[in-house]
Amino acid sequence: MAVAASTSTSERVIVAKAKWRPLENERNLAWLLLLPTMVLLGLFIAYPFMRGLLLSVTDTRVGIPGEFVGLANFRRLASDPIFHAVVWNTCWYTLVTTIFKLGLGLWLALLLNRSFKFKAFTRAFILLPFIIPTVLSTFAWKWMFDPTFSVLNWMLYQTGIIRVAINWLGDGDLAMLSIIIVNIWRGVPFFAISLLAGLQTISPDLNEAAAIDGARPLQRFWYITWPLLLPVTMVVMLFSVIQTFADFQIVYVMTGGGPANATHLFATYAYQLGVGTGLLSQGAAVSLAMFPILLLIVIVQLLYIRRVEVR
């Protein structure tokens, strides 16, 4: 400092009086700032998770405290044909919906990224399926899939595509198809809007430069837009896969897991066993069985995202 360097007699050094200020210590401050988050996460995530773990190694039922039974619940699941179907259903449901949500969402995002009239309005409008409470919109879908009175069968019948009413939710495969359609309908806006945000970070100059370089529209997408959008795409996929894998509302409202357990996912089956039937510990085991599979998916995707971002 200039003052310190001078030798003038007017030189003064002002020392702050030592006060007890514990928050000036960064370590204390860090703990204080972390505290609310830690309390919330601990109370609402860590504690229920631990309770779930403890529950799954007992034979607790509603009204019966139960005793420690080790991994018996998990062994029972391994030989439970419904659980096998649940694993398959959940993977299939997640795979198919994610592919369609990505495809349709990307297509929508590319369209919305262009300049057109009522652009802002349309972008907001697209989000509607995502904003409406899922249970409400799923009830509407349930009515639309009703075999006797629904608009869907009526349209197909009137246009001559079908002659006999289709029992959408009464047939195992069609019921699966129905919940997949509803999930895609609900999930596309999230993909579209997130990917649109990603697209908007890509400078239009790059596409212009590529156009001048001789790349056709599809080549521009493949060589420029897609690789630059990939990090965003991977994050969106990660969120979507986690949500879809643990989906509950759509299946619970549409089919309740039926017909004949054909549409049960992890969450609905765990609910049915644990709450519906009262086999709390078995329900806990089913929902915990989701955990290693999800963990694996998340690890793979996070590793991939890191690789993409380092590039």
Partner: peptide, 12 residues
């Protein structure tokens, strides 16, 4: 061929 103000190099 065009040279852009912000170069427009393909970052990836």
């Amino acid at each position: 061929a065009m040279v852009f103000q912000n170069y427009a190099l393909y970052p990836h």
